[in-house]
Design a protein around this nucleic acid. Structure first.
Lengths: 343, 343
DNA sequence: TTTTTTTACGCAATCGTTACCGAGAACGAT
DNA sequence: ATCGTTCTCGGTAACGATTGCGTAAAAAAA
């Protein structure tokens, strides 16, 4: 089955005109008589003519489409960021194609190359937790593809970056736990390749240091698949509580990680004694039991900012050489899960 | 800025061949000598040639892209369904473009018309809660656009439909509340235009009837924006508890509705006395307090089934005239929120 | 009336690709 | 030596839309 649409030729044939005349009439060119214009416009309206965007793309070498690559749309942070992206793109006449890497490097690459070949005008990328080899992206970028990174960024490619203040977010969260009286704070985080992992770890360390708590390597657990594999997290937590440095609190560094860890702790019946906080943009964290103390990112604004930079690059006549790293503040929302029992 | 890719012409020029020869060599035509083929293939590999999908689409009048229209990707049901869709599409060589209607009829129409113009080979649609005028969709369908509806469907357009067993899901949920000892069960649901609203309401009524509980119109509240506007739900719940038929339990009919209602009840401190269950595909319902009794839909399978039907239609030589309505079972997951205090 | 200008439209190229049609060369068969 | 095949490849016309250029006819200026 195929879907046929009316073309400019159909109009030309019906009205006994050339396609060029029809095209010009449609675009309101001054070269066309008012009468002919009226005829064409009316007939076009009647048969519900829509210019074929594929033909236009081929001709103009632009698609007015931008590609988005995230790890999971089912992640609250990303779905909110996408809403931010769409809110701007829509008004500026751009279309958004969303793809998911599911935290797989291969899948990410396939998606990006497909998007590029398919002719998006620019790319908004948040790296997967597996991504290390970025050479293909570098090539794409060198060939002139406008790219903006957000959330999970890289410095290997010189372009705009939009991120949350992961360092301060982690710092405040950790400090909050310390203020509550916790001393042995575990940090469960994602793949060490990720920028967010490094930044959040730094914030965590800085808070410990400020309060003269020695950093303990064995309290930090990396989950290389960013929460996609539950067993990986279960093992990490089990190891944590088996170790001699048994933690009295936990700070998690990712949306999925936070939810899954919290669920595991709850099932382990450990929850009561363990202070807990983590990065998440879940809107239902207050419905949990205990309600969750979270670090929330301005996801919507991050999405908006990222696409604004991207459109700027796309529409710029000259190659952009001056790049910025935009950092937006996070918010610590204090609830029950971080309260110290008996304090 | 623009992104330039290597074309078949570049290869032809470099190798002193015609574009047609190159094209045939690339596709392995028997008409081309082994030597030439080798040359072309090697050079293509070297400059990393990728056929321009836009030019291909224009020529073949197919895009190998399918469009998906849902109300919100931040809805657990839809993000899971999309994962199901992608899992199949990916393997069959189709690309998926996701758009959100945000429960707005206008936005839905703009998205669909854009997708159609943009030349998707088929459409996977779950209607918005506002959608009543489907004439434009009918036109599109009459012109030959393959469409499959899922979840929120319509009978106005003759095509495949893939849904959960909303009737039985609602029936079992309601009956479960009755078995728990609840007598005055409120039903908070979405827009009455929606197929899921009607089907779930029917299941609810049937369960009441079976257990000789008279149906009370004032216990049913419609939220026309499907949970997008919190105040709408707050008003519905307030009205419910102010009415003389003060409910002792509540059954909600949508992902967002369930979460929001539960949150409101919790804030109203009504939760303890009110039995609660609802449709949701949230994976964290067990982390709530009290943990949530839910009706869960096979979202992933619904997505998979829907796209399989769609691809069948797209690839069918003859127009498909025999349509099915595929109904997949729901699952009632019993937790604390529906337990009757003192029972 | 003749010349110039303006008006209003058509022709053809272009974007990247494929497919149909043909053409030249090599070769064996007659 | 001539003819028919087979093997390779090139030319060209699409797909749908835009656009620079050319030009006939009509209008204006001389």
């Amino acid at each position: 089955m195929k879907f046929e649409s009316a073309t400019i030729k159909d109009i030309a044939k019906a009205l006994n005109l050339s396609t060029s005349t029809v095209s010009r009439a449609l675009r309101g060119s001054y070269e066309i008589s008012a009468e002919t214009k009226k005829q064409v416009l009316e007939y076009a309206e009647k048969i519900n003519y829509r210019p074929n965007p594929i033909a236009l793309s081929l001709k103009e070498r632009r698609t007015r489409a931008i590609g988005v690559v995230v790890s999971e749309i089912a992640n609250n942070f990303f779905s909110q960021a996408i809403n931010g992206i769409e809110s701007i793109a829509y008004n500026r006449g751009y279309h958004v194609t969303i793809t998911q890497s599911h935290e797989s490097q291969d899948r990410e690459r396939v998606n990006i190359e497909h998007l590029a070949a398919r002719g998006v005008d620019g790319l908004l990328i948040s790296l997967s937790s597996e991504s290390v080899d970025l050479s293909y992206l570098k090539e794409l970028h060198d060939k002139g593809m406008p790219i903006v990174f957000f959330d999970r960024v890289t410095k290997e490619i010189e372009t705009h970056r939009v991120i949350a203040d992961n360092y301060m977010g982690a710092f405040h969260a950790t400090e909050h736990l310390i203020y509550q009286g916790y001393k042995k704070i575990a940090h469960v985080t994602s793949s060490p390749y990720l920028s967010i992992t490094r930044e959040r770890l730094e914030g965590y360390r800085a808070a410990l240091e400020k309060h003269k708590i020695t950093f303990n390597e064995s309290l930090v657990k990396y989950c290389n698949h960013g929460g996609m594999i539950v067993s990986e997290i279960e093992e990490a937590i089990t190891a944590l509580f088996k170790s001699k440095a048994k933690p009295d609190a936990m700070f998690t560094a990712g949306d999925r990680l936070t939810i899954v860890c919290f669920g595991i702790l709850k099932r382990m019946k450990q929850k009561k004694e363990i202070g807990f906080t983590g990065f998440t943009n879940s809107q239902v964290a207050d419905l949990f039991s205990p309600s969750l103390t979270v670090i929330s990112q301005p996801a919507f604004e991050i999405g908006q900012t990222a696409i604004e930079y991207l459109i700027q690059m796309i529409e710029s006549k000259h190659p952009v050489t001056d790049f910025v790293e935009k950092v937006l503040p996070t918010e610590l929302i204090i609830r029950e899960s971080s309260r110290k029992a008996g304090s």
